[in-house]
Design a protein around this nucleic acid. Structure first.
Lengths: 147, 147
DNA sequence: TTTTTAACTTGCATTTCACAAGTAAACTAT
DNA sequence: ATAGTTTACTTGTGAAATGCAAGTTAAAAA
């Protein structure tokens, strides 16, 4: 199933984005894929925010159906799947970093190192590009892709 | 009531941001305040996404309790209130524009003019600054603030 | 061939959401 | 002064989403 017929509330681009990833978990999943090197179900389950397995399962299916991630069977272990960002998913890097910058600025107990928001604002595009390069460097590659 | 004791899932800055505004409506409200000149309850109700009045009411209360917006009584009409972004709320401009850029790029039916994502990526900080200037120019000013 | 591991799925209680209707205070018109 | 209107909510109710625990299936490891 590639298309779900969910009626859209509007065609405002902000609304489109929020309908796609504007829930409590989708961008946590994208953060873990894009930034934290978590590509498998059990890795994503291990997020400190404690997502429930049924919710994670549904979100992965949904993100794949929206073309934001793709599910690839691990050729070395048929039990495992790897979830990777598509181009559409990689384009969420800016959203994730912008949210992180905002959170780092306003959470008094933030885990982010001091100066994070200043660094980010000093050159957003360079930091986004750098983060995408780091993602490409660590994402797993398989010779033959499936599913 | 200024503080609600909601236990935080983590102190990851992305998670902080998502706990604050990671629902389907909070950033729609911030979009309308920051970008669309909607400052009153009835203006915000008029969003084409059709938010329910009880949800809007709860979100406004919540955003105010998080220090993202402030509620000001209109001195010219005691029935009305004006909702304005605080510095913390204004700092969400980048998040809203980044989401909008992503939505404009990937929604085939987007209302955004062509070239929007390219323009945004060409100089994110300049566009954010310009949008904040436009916000300041149109936000209502009262001599005496209350509530 | 038995056990373990990975990725889900199911059932169920709780919470949140959406829609419709109702209310109270402030303003406007007569 | 009073009746009607406007604004900003609040309340009630059913539907949907969420969270937790336990169960299932297929593949790999022992």
């Amino acid at each position: 199933m590639v298309h779900k017929d969910i009626p859209q509330r509007s065609h405002c681009p902000v609304n489109y984005a929020l309908e796609a990833v504007g829930d409590r978990w989708s961008l946590i999943v994208m953060r873990d894929i894009l930034l934290n090197g978590k590509f498998r179900f059990r890795d994503l389950m291990g997020a400190e925010e404690n997502i429930a397995s049924n919710i994670l399962s549904e979100r992965l299916t949904r993100l794949a159906s929206l073309g934001i991630i793709k599910k690839i069977r691990d050729p070395d272990d048929g039990r495992q799947f790897v979830y990777l960002a598509t181009a559409k998913g990689e384009a969420l890097m800016g959203v994730v970093l912008e949210l992180g910058s905002w959170g780092a600025e306003f959470d008094p107990k933030t885990d982010a190192p001091p100066g994070t928001p200043d660094n980010y604002r000093a050159d957003r595009s360079a930091i986004i590009t750098g983060a995408l390069e780091a993602y490409h460097a660590m994402k797993p590659r398989f010779s033959n892709k499936q599913e």
